[in-house]
Design a binder for these strands. Structure first.
Length: 714
DNA sequence: ATAGGGTTAG
């Protein structure tokens, strides 16, 4: 390169002649500063490279500064080589080299930083500090910690900032034992009290979920500043102690510290987590008094509290009053409506919003998924791709849920492939969704493959999805083996137990079912409506209907499925009367669906209420707008046939909107033999024999011991 | 060290 050749020449001349009074370096220094001031890094570097003499330290420092904000690794390398090559005393300022180390890290190359560190003939304390910060910045906490321990054994005193960054690394590594040692060092070097270090100690204990220690440290801080308060609130929130987070916030206010908006927002997140509407309102009042109205961060969190607590209209009011709405506030409003199940209003907001990003699209997509609008979700997903050309792993994961919901294996595979091509498929959430999609679509082999690929990331959710796949596709026996394998790797939760209970119900494993029930009670699991549903189902299938009824009665929020389970359970256990009573009670709380009517009709079968059953059957379409399915027709055939209403049965068959199935014909055939309906019985025989000519049946009426009695009446 | 979207059950 010409510039390099000229620089070399300049340097030779300079050596031969000696520095002049007005050296060219002085003029190029001001040129470089001028370029840096106007933000022209390229020209500044060009000027630097064309000069073969050293510059004052502040020129290099300013160059490094701009390199780091431009993240330009190649330019840092140029600055470093100039610095090393032309330094007057053949060893450049250690201070500048330390700066260079950090700059390399900021430009994304801890390797360059380490190379420079290793090559430096003399280092000072700052060099170690720089290299440790460089590792911390580059997300290499292990390297940072081990370098710190080398530094410590070399007897070099760390600066407070170094200690702070090493503490941060301990947090990344969740290494509370290291954090404790560093805490001791801080005390030993006498750095305390120092709000920044104190707060870092609180932060590291909190991140390691050692909340008692975090709090102890916090209480020792003489004058916690707003950042210290922010840290303790946030740590409580993330450790799952929403109540403590709220208490700390109120204490902060009492002590007269004005919170950062992040602190307010974190406290509000705590409120929405535990549905603390009252506290949310109090904070709202405080915010109005202290002038937070225009703050979007705070506004969005408050909207979230209102939406989660079911007063979405308050959220809407807040939204309407926001002085300058941005994408985030619009998106918050969408998820607010989604949280309350008002998807149509979420749609309206979505259509009205002036600009959208991936997250806004995902918010509405999540709404469709949450309320089982799978086709709508798929259409929306396609529209998103068509209109924006953008998707991310959350959109794909949601779409996988839709595929699982409608058992669309082909589309699921396409999504899998798309994620694979974008190198997105290593995400744990996404992988769990993949396992679930394959399991729900019945492709257990692919579910197992996806499951084994994520070996090191597997959690309770992954196991739950796989196990529920086994049960759904008739492999209930395998669940116990899977459960014990699971326990070697992770801890089962109520989802797991619910699934295992379903297996127990399927294959009548009463003992295991009882054990799980007892285990949950002993270990303080709260039995929600879903767990109770599984217990009710297990006990009623295993013929312990009394247990089932007791568990049902202990639940206060009874949804459709729970009602259906107990109604079916009673009918199945021959307690038709009780089923029908429960059905009458149910109607006051929730709307019946087609499953309910299977239970109701079976109850009539068990009690011999033929006429009542016919009326219920007619009411399905007349009153409830529920179209009878094959199961309901089967129940009616059973009801009429079992009790010998042969005229009505023949009429019913005549009016069927479809040809009876072979199992139906077989049941009709048997009833006709028992109750003596030759015409229908021979018709049934004809259909059965057509479907299976190898073992034909012959119709004949079973002779009765006593007199023959037609049971049919009007 | 910066708001908004995502996983499993009857």
């Amino acid at each position: 390169m010409a510039a390099t050749a000229r620089s070399l020449l300049d340097r030779l001349i300079q050596h031969a002649v000696g520095p002049k009074r007005t050296s060219p370096a002085a003029t190029s220094a001001s040129t470089i500063i001028r370029h840096l001031d106007s933000g022209d890094l390229r020209k500044a570097i060009a000027t630097l490279s064309s000069s073969a003499s050293p510059f004052p330290d502040n020129v290099y420092a300013s160059l490094l500064h701009l390199c780091s904000s431009r993240r330009s690794l190649v330019d840092v390398r140029r600055v470093e080589s100039h610095l090393v090559a032309f330094s007057p005393s053949s060893s450049p300022s250690i201070f500048l080299l330390n700066r260079t180390i950090v700059t390399y890290a900021r430009c994304g190359s801890p390797a360059d930083a380490r190379e420079l560190f290793d090559e430096m003939p003399t280092r000072d304390g700052g060099t170690w500090n720089a290299m440790i910060s460089a590792y911390a910045l580059s997300d290499c906490p292990n390297e940072a910690v081990s370098l710190f321990s080398r530094m410590n054994s070399a007897g070099i005193r760390p600066k407070d900032v170094t200690l702070a960054s090493v503490l941060g690394c301990c947090a990344d590594l969740l290494a509370s034992f290291l954090a404790r040692q560093i805490h001791c060092l801080i005390l030993k070097y006498g750095y305390l009290p120092n709000v920044i270090l104190d707060t870092s100690v609180v932060d590291v204990y909190g991140k390691c979920l050692e909340m008692n220690d975090a709090r102890k440290m916090f209480d020792l801080i003489l004058h916690p500043n707003e950042i210290s308060w922010n840290v303790i609130v946030r740590r409580y929130l993330e450790a799952g102690s929403a109540g403590e987070a709220m208490l700390m916030f109120f204490q902060m206010i009492r002590e007269g510290v004005k919170p950062l908006s992040f602190t307010v927002s974190n406290t509000l997140k705590a409120c929405s987590k535990v549905l603390a509407l009252k506290e949310g309102n109090q904070i709202h009042a405080y915010l109005l008094k202290t002038g937070f109205e225009g703050d979007n961060v705070v506004g969005c969190s408050l909207m979230d509290v209102y939406a989660k607590c079911g007063v979405v209209d308050d959220a809407r009011q807040l939204f309407d009053q926001l002085p300058c709405k941005d994408v985030v506030s619009w998106t918050s409003m969408i998820s607010g409506y989604v949280a309350c199940g008002r998807v149509d209003e979420a749609e309206k907001i979505f259509e009205e919003m002036p600009e959208r990003n991936v997250i806004s699209w995902n918010a509405l997509l999540a709404g469709y998924i949450r309320f089982f609008c799978w086709d709508k979700a798929s259409d929306f997903f396609c529209r998103m791709w068509r209109e924006t050309g953008k998707l991310d792993l959350v959109s794909l994961g949601l779409q996988l849920n839709a595929c699982a919901g409608i058992s669309d294996l082909d589309r699921g595979k396409q999504i899998h492939g798309f994620a694979y091509r974008h190198n997105w498929e290593s995400d744990k959430f996404f992988r769990n969704q993949l396992v679930d999609m394959y399991a729900k679509c019945g492709n257990l082999r692919n579910a197992e493959i996806s499951f084994s690929i994520m070996a090191d990331q597997r959690d309770t959710v992954s196991w739950n999805s796989l196990i529920s796949g086994y049960i759904r596709y008739g492999r209930s026996e395998e669940t116990l083996v899977a459960l014990s394998e699971m326990q070697r790797e992770t801890i089962p939760n109520e989802f797991t137990f619910t699934t295992i209970l379903a297996a127990c119900a399927n294959i009548f494993m009463l003992d295991v079912g009882k054990q799980i029930h007892a285990f949950m009670v002993r270990n303080g699991f709260q039995l929600n409506a879903i767990v109770r549903g599984a217990l009710v189902d297990m006990y009623s299938k295993c013929r312990l209907i009394e247990y089932a009824i007791k568990i049902f009665e202990e639940e206060s929020t009874r949804d459709l499925i729970l009602w259906n389970t107990i109604i079916l359970g009673c009918a199945y256990n021959g307690r038709g009367e009780q089923s029908l009573d429960l059905f009458e009670e149910m109607k006051k709380e929730v709307a019946a669906d087609n499953v309910t009517f299977i239970g109701v009709l079976l109850a009539c079968v068990s009690q011999g209420y033929v006429d009542l059953g016919r009326r219920y059957f007619d009411s399905m379409s007349n009153e409830y707008g529920i179209i009878p399915r094959i199961e309901h027709y089967e129940c009616m055939i059973e009801l009429l046939g079992k009790y010998g209403w042969m005229v009505e049965l023949e009429d019913f068959i005549q009016r069927l909107p479809f040809e009876p199935t072979i199992p139906m014909w077989i049941r009709i055939f048997d009833c006709c033999r028992e109750h003596g309906n030759i015409r229908l019985g021979e018709r049934a025989a004809k259909f059965i024999n057509e479907s299976n000519p190898l073992t034909p049946v012959q119709f004949e009426i079973i002779p009765r011991a006593g007199h023959h009695m037609p049971c049919s009446s009007g």
